[in-house]
Computed example of a mutant assay.
Amino acid sequence: MRTITLGRTGITVPQNAFGALPIQRIPKEDAAQLLQCAYEGGMRFFDTARAYSDSEEKIGYAFGREGGIFKTGREHIFIASKTHAQTPQEFQNDLETSLRMLNCGYIDVYQFHQMDTCWKPGDGTGMYECMLKAKAEGKIRHIGATTHKLGVAMEIVQSGLYETLQYPFSYLATEKEMDLYRQVQKSGMGFICMKGLAGGLINRSEAAMAFMAQYDNALPIWGIQRMSELKEWLAYMDRTPEMTPELEAYIRDEKRELAGNFCRGCGYCMPCTVGITINQCNRMSLMLRRAPSQAWLTPHWQTEMEKINDCVDCRVCTTRCPYELDIPNLLRANLKDYQEVLAGKVSVS
């Protein structure tokens, strides 16, 4: 079984990790069964966040009960969580809440969530000092960072202050993002890869896995909600897909189709001043072509898409977008495509 070491943290785990954002959408018992099966199948790294509603609580329920792995072999499982805190008091509240929900004594990798700036010692915020204090107290083992913004990611790497970086990484990565991977590797940081399926746009897991397996320092966290999804990733633990000429050609075609101005669904643009669900509506055309379509054609999503007509071009969203997308015009293009699908002028799978 191929393993990944997260840089200087020394954490070494099997090549696929469990992204626990989706388990907030399923009942507690179902989540517990899924998590336990993931552990039994070989997964050892589980990523969650305070912002993922009851995800931490479900992990604590699955692993922290009497006889659970937190009680019998905590050193054999690694938990990463995150805080959106902007003040030291918020940081302390989030950390204590996470430890209580997770039902464990410490968090292996504690990360600042969706960073807009690189917190540093002495910058006047006290935020990085919170991490140092938590580490000294044994409440966390390693200090991590997550962001969708390439410039912030580069600054995090160059600072030398963080032990891991979590950043979107898939076969749709740009050359600048590939350079970020190389800089992370050179720095000795661990690289935790989110959005390995580009927020649902990539629908061939074999290709996604073959791409990721080429990078020794990259640990992908796959968002998992269903047992069928879990079984697919577990099957790749021992039989990892290799990059073949056929897969290379497939990925080249994918990159041509998806290159350029497409929404990654990160949500940095939110909230919209007039209530548009930007991070979903702005990639509706792609989702209709690449994901089962009926889920996107319900009355709910028809109503959400119609809200695009309310756009006032305030462009607050464009100032927040890490990919510098022309969001208002992309929204209108998506609405036009959507209306054509509803009118039967365009067919989808």
Rank of each mutant, 00 (worst) to 15 (best):
L247N: 03
G19I: 06
I77Y: 03
C311F: 07
L286N: 07
H142W: 14
Y181H: 10
E206V: 12
L325I: 08
G190N: 13
E229Y: 13
W222P: 01
Q214T: 01
P121F: 03
L165I: 15
G10T: 11
H76A: 12
Q183D: 03
D123T: 01
F78I: 04
E75L: 06
C104M: 13
I224W: 07
R283E: 02
G10P: 08
Q280D: 00
E304F: 01
I308A: 09
Q294I: 07
E163Y: 11
T164H: 14
A207V: 00
P328E: 11
W119F: 09
F91W: 13
M1E: 05
S285L: 02
G138F: 14
L35F: 02
W296C: 01
Y323D: 08
L286R: 09
K58Y: 00
P121A: 07
P245Y: 11
M131D: 07
Q214M: 04
A213Q: 04
L34S: 11
T273Y: 06
Q24D: 10
G260N: 12
R50Y: 15
G138M: 14
S55Y: 12
M243W: 04
F262V: 10
L286H: 11
R289Q: 14
G124L: 02
L99P: 11
C37I: 04
S349R: 15
E340D: 15
A213D: 06
G190Y: 12
S347Q: 15
I251S: 05
Q36Y: 03
G124C: 02
K149F: 06
M115K: 00
D54E: 08
G265A: 00
L102M: 05
M287N: 07
K176N: 09
D216W: 05
E40S: 05
R74K: 07
I276V: 12
F169C: 00
L325E: 11
E254Y: 03
V13L: 03
L247Y: 08
R332N: 04
M178P: 00
M237L: 15
D337L: 10
A49T: 14
F191Y: 15
E246L: 14
C263H: 08
A153W: 04
L150C: 01
E175M: 03
K28Y: 03
Q33F: 10
D47E: 13
K345V: 09
M194K: 12
N16M: 14
K149N: 13
N93I: 08
A295S: 09
A295C: 08
F112P: 00
I23E: 06
C37P: 02
K82P: 06
K135G: 05
E257T: 01
E175H: 02
R65P: 02
C37M: 13
Y236H: 09
E232C: 05
C37L: 10
L197Q: 07
E206I: 07
G64D: 05
R252L: 05
E163N: 10
G42T: 04
Q158A: 13
I224V: 13
W301T: 00
T318M: 15
L288F: 06
M284D: 04
K149T: 07
S228F: 08
S170N: 12
